[in-house]
Design a protein around this nucleic acid. Structure first.
Length: 721
DNA sequence: TCACAAACCCTTTTT
DNA sequence: GGGTTTGTGA
C-alpha cells in the first residue's frame, strides 16, 4: 500500500495531520463533520504501512461501541488484513480486557462479573435496607450517582473525608458498604472497570512498563468526553517514549454529567508537551445554511476554545421549523414528511428522528407502526437490558458459576416457584454467616425450612444442578436454547398475558440467535460463555448492523454523536424538554444543552427539520410549553416556518382538552375549519385555520384564485357559502 | 407466606 | 405512562 492511497481525498490540513512525524504528540481540534474519525483511521493506516509500526503497538480508544466497530471495519478494509489483535475499543471495553488478562493482580477471580446500572441500583438498595438507611431521606438514585461520580474522579471511599456534612457522611457509609460487597462478590461496575484497571497499572510497575513499551501509539477519539480517570489512564500509559494522538471538539462535549471534563483538552497541552495542535475547520458534511445556523447557535456559548466551521458546499435548503398542535400532530408531520422523502427515492435509513429523551420515542414509534414504515430505535430499554433477557442471562451465569449471587437473586423465584422474600432473606443470612454462596446456602438450609418452602427451594437447586449437568458439553447457543426450556422461562413468557404482542417470547428466541452470532475470537482472554455475558453488559444494544439498511432511525441526540444522516428531524424543541428542565438554572448545564443542540444540527447532510408542539402530554399531564430558546438563537434567514394545518393556540382548546375547531366570529356567525366562504375581492375559499376568537381572530383561508391568505375577521367581511 | 391488583410516585442524557 | 411499593386475599 502506498502513501497516496492513504492521503487520497484528504485536504491539506487532514493530510498534514495524518503524516505528521513521530516526534511530537498531536491534538487535532476538529469541528463537526470535518472528518476527524477519518483522519484518525488514516493515521493508524499510515503508521502501520509507512512507519512499520506493528499492529500490536497501536492502542485506539473510541467513545462508543458503535464507533469501535466502525473503526475496526474501516481499518481492516484499508489495511486489507485482519486486525484482531489490535487494541481498538471503548475505554470500558479495553479496561475490561486488561482486567480479564490480569485478574489476579487486580484482586479479582477469573469469573468476575460486570454490574450494569440496574444491578448496581438493586445492590445499593438492598445494602441500604439491610443497614436501616432510610431511602426517603437518601434516595437510592442519588447514592448511586454519588458513588459513580467519586469513582469517575478516581476517588475511593477511603479517600473521602466527610467532615461534618451529614449527607456526605451517609453517602459515604453506603459507598463503603457497597465497595466491600462488590469486593467480596467479585463484582465490577462500569466506573470500577476504569478505576480498577488504572490502579492495576499504577500498582504494578512491571505491567505498566510492559504496556508502555507495547503501545507505541495511543490514539483517542472524542477526547472532550474523557473523564478524570480516563485521562489519568492515558497519562499513565504515556511513558514519554511513545506518542499520543488525540482528536476532539470542545463544542461537542455533551457528557459532563458523566464526569467528562472539557478541561482535559487544555490539560493535554501541558501534560503531554511538546504537542502539535492542528485545527480542522472545513466541514464536508452539511449545507451552508445548516452550518451557518449551527455556528450562530453555538456562538451563544461562553468559554469556547473558538473556531468557526466553513464549507464549500452550496447553501442548500432552508431549515424547516414546524409548529405542531400536539405531540401526535408532530409525529404525524414527521412521518408524513418522511413518507414523501421515501416516495422521492430516499432510503428509509437516510432519515433520522432525534430527540432529547428516550421517553419521546414512543409517540413516533406508534405513528411509524400506523403508517407501516420500518424503523429501528436505539437506546431506551435496550435489548439486553430487558427483563426476560436478563433472566435468561442470569440462568446462564448461574450455570457457569453457581456462586454468582447476583444471578441467583434474580432467578431464584423467576418464573415464580413459591420462593418468597422471607425464604430468600434466610438464605442471605445463612450465606453471610457461613461465608458461602447463596446457592450453597440454599442447599444447606432447606432442611430447616417449612415443608412448602423447602420443597420449592429444593426444586430450584435440583433444577440448576440438572441444567449444569445437561449443558456441560453444549456450545453457547445450544446452552441458551436448553436453559430457556428447562428453566421454564420460555413457557412462562409464552403464557404472559401482559405481553400481548408476544415480543418477550420473540426476544428470547432472538437471544439464541445472538448467541449463535457471537464472535468469540475478539475476546479470547475468556471462555465463550463468559465472553458472551460480558459483552452483554458492556454493549447492551444487541444491534446487528444488517438491520440498519432499510429502517428509519430513532435515537437520542446523545447516541447520534459521531453519526450523520441526509435527513434529520430534531423534535420536541420546547423549553423544559430541550433544553431540559433540570439544566435551566445552571449556566454551564445550559451551555451543554446548547452543545447538544449543536451536535444534533450538525448531524445533517441535506435537510434539517425542527419541530415543537404547542400542547404536549407529558408526565401524565397536559402542558403548553414555550418553543425552545435555541430556535430564537438561529437567525431567521436560515429558517422556513411552517404551521400546522389546524394551528392551536391555548384558547382553541375546550375545558375537557378536546380541540375546538369552531370559531365564533360575531354573535351571530360561527364557522369551522373546512367551511366554504366568499370574500368580496378574493372570491371563493375554504377556511384552513384560525387563531383567537371574535373580531380580532385571524383566519387562514385558501382561495381558489389567489392562494392562501391570513385575514383579520373584522375586516374580512366574509360571506358564508 | 406468596401472588396479584391497586395505588402511588417520578420523570435526561450512557459505558 | 410506567415502574415500584403497598395492601389484600388466598
Amino acid at each position: 500500500m502506498n502513501l497516496s492511497e492513504i492521503t487520497n481525498g484528504l485536504n491539506d490540513k487532514q493530510c498534514q495531520s495524518v503524516i505528521l512525524n513521530n516526534e511530537k504528540n498531536v491534538l487535532i481540534l476538529a469541528g463537526a463533520g470535518s472528518g476527524k474519525t477519518r483522519v484518525l483511521t488514516r493515521r493508524i493506516a499510515y503508521l502501520i504501512t509507512q512507519k512499520n509500526i506493528r499492529i500490536n503497538a497501536i492502542l485506539a480508544v473510541t467513545f462508543t461501541n458503535k464507533a469501535a466497530v466502525e473503526m475496526r471495519g474501516k481499518l481492516s478494509i484499508l489495511l486489507r488484513r485482519p486486525i484482531q489483535s489490535m487494541w481498538v475499543g471503548t475505554f470500558h471495553g479495553l479496561a475490561h480486557r486488561l482486567l480479564r488478562t490480569h485478574y489476579e493482580k487486580a484482586r479479582l477471580t477469573s469469573g468476575f462479573q460486570i454490574l450494569d446500572a440496574q444491578d448496581q441500583f438493586c445492590i445499593v438498595k438492598r445494602l441500604m435496607k439491610e443497614n436501616n438507611i432510610d431511602e426517603s431521606k437518601l434516595p437510592i438514585k442519588k447514592v448511586q450517582w454519588f458513588i459513580n461520580n467519586q469513582k469517575d474522579e478516581g476517588i475511593r471511599a477511603q479517600n473521602i473525608d466527610p467532615g461534618y456534612n451529614y449527607f456526605v457522611k451517609k453517602n459515604l457509609e453506603v459507598f463503603e458498604l457497597y465497595e466491600a460487597h462488590c469486593q467480596i462478590n467479585d463484582l465490577i461496575d462500569f466506573a470500577e472497570l476504569l478505576i480498577r484497571s488504572y490502579e492495576l497499572l499504577k500498582n504494578n510497575t512491571d505491567l505498566l512498563n510492559h504496556y508502555q513499551a507495547r503501545f507505541e501509539h495511543i490514539l483517542v477519539d472524542e477526547f472532550q468526553d474523557t473523564n478524570t480517570v480516563q485521562y489519568k489512564w492515558i497519562k499513565l500509559l504515556f511513558s514519554g517514549n511513545n506518542r499520543v494522538f488525540c482528536v476532539g471538539d470542545d463544542d461537542q462535549s455533551i457528557y459532563s454529567w458523566r464526569g467528562a471534563k472539557i478541561e482535559n483538552i487544555t490539560k493535554l497541552c501541558t501534560d503531554f508537551a511538546p504537542i502539535e495542535t492542528i485545527h480542522l475547520e472545513q466541514n464536508y458534511r452539511s449545507t451552508g445554511n445548516i452550518l451557518n445556523a449551527s455556528n450562530a447557535l453555538i456562538a451563544h456559548n461562553t468559554n469556547r476554545m473558538g473556531k468557526s466551521l466553513w464549507t464549500n458546499a452550496s447553501n442548500g435548503e432552508l431549515i424547516d421549523i414546524y409548529e405542531a398542535r400536539t405531540e401526535t400532530d408532530e409525529a404525524d408531520y414527521v412521518i408524513s414528511s418522511i413518507q414523501k422523502l421515501i416516495t422521492d427515492n430516499a432510503s428509509p435509513s437516510d432519515c433520522a428522528i432525534l430527540y432529547r429523551s428516550n421517553a419521546q420515542s414512543r409517540i413516533f414509534e406508534e405513528a411509524l407502526i400506523k403508517y407501516n414504515i420500518p424503523y429501528i430505535i436505539y437506546g431506551g430499554l435496550r435489548f439486553l437490558e430487558r427483563a426476560e433477557i436478563k433472566d435468561a442471562l442470569s440462568y446462564l451465569r448461574l450455570i457457569e458459576n453457581s456462586a454468582d449471587n447476583v444471578a441467583f437473586e434474580r432467578v431464584v423465584n423467576s418464573p415464580t416457584r413459591g420462593i418468597g422474600n422471607v425464604t430468600v432473606e434466610k438464605i442471605r443470612t445463612f450465606a453471610q454467616d457461613n461465608h458461602t454462596s447463596l446457592f450453597q446456602a440454599a442447599i444447606q438450609i432447606s432442611s430447616t425450612l417449612p415443608t412448602r418452602s423447602a420443597n420449592a427451594l429444593n426444586g430450584f437447586t435440583k433444577l440448576i444442578e440438572k441444567m449444569i449437568d445437561e449443558t456441560k458439553y453444549l456450545g453457547l447457543s445450544e446452552k441458551v436454547a436448553n436453559l430457556l426450556n428447562t428453566s421454564g422461562l420460555m413457557a412462562h413468557y409464552s403464557n404472559d398475558k401482559t405481553d400481548k404482542a408476544g415480543s418477550k417470547k420473540e426476544n428470547l428466541k432472538e437471544l439464541i440467535t445472538a448467541a449463535q452470532q457471537y464472535n468469540h475470537e475478539q475476546d479470547s482472554e475468556m471462555n465463550e460463555v463468559l465472553g458472551f455475558i460480558s459483552l452483554a453488559s458492556l454493549d447492551s444494544s444487541g444491534d446487528t448492523n444488517a438491520l440498519i439498511n432499510q429502517n428509519i432511525q430513532l435515537m437520542t441526540i446523545h447516541s447520534a454523536k459521531g453519526l450523520e444522516f441526509p435527513y434529520v428531524f430534531l423534535v420536541g424543541m420546547e423549553e423544559d424538554l430541550f433544553p431540559s428542565r433540570q439544566s435551566k438554572d445552571e449556566p454551564h448545564l445550559m451551555d451543554e444543552e446548547r452543545r447538544l443542540c449543536y451536535v444534533g444540527m450538525t448531524r445533517v447532510i441535506k435537510k434539517l427539520s425542527l419541530s415543537y408542539a404547542i400542547k404536549r402530554f407529558l408526565h401524565g399531564e397536559s402542558l403548553y410549553p414555550c418553543p425552545s430558546r435555541f430556535l430564537d438563537e438561529i437567525p431567521s434567514e436560515y429558517l422556513n416556518k411552517i404551521k400546522a394545518k389546524f394551528s392551536a393556540t391555548k384558547q382553541n382548546y375546550n375545558a375537557d382538552n378536546t380541540f375546538n375547531q369552531n370559531i365564533t366570529l360575531k354573535s351571530d356567525g360561527q364557522l369551522s375549519i373546512g367551511t366554504s366562504v366568499k370574500h368580496a375581492k378574493f372570491g371563493l375559499g375554504t377556511v384552513l385555520n384560525f387563531e383567537g376568537q371574535g373580531d380580532s381572530a385571524r383566519i387562514q383561508i385558501k382561495f381558489k384564485q389567489v392562494g392562501t391568505k391570513w385575514l383579520i375577521s373584522s375586516y374580512a367581511n366574509l360571506e358564508f357559502v
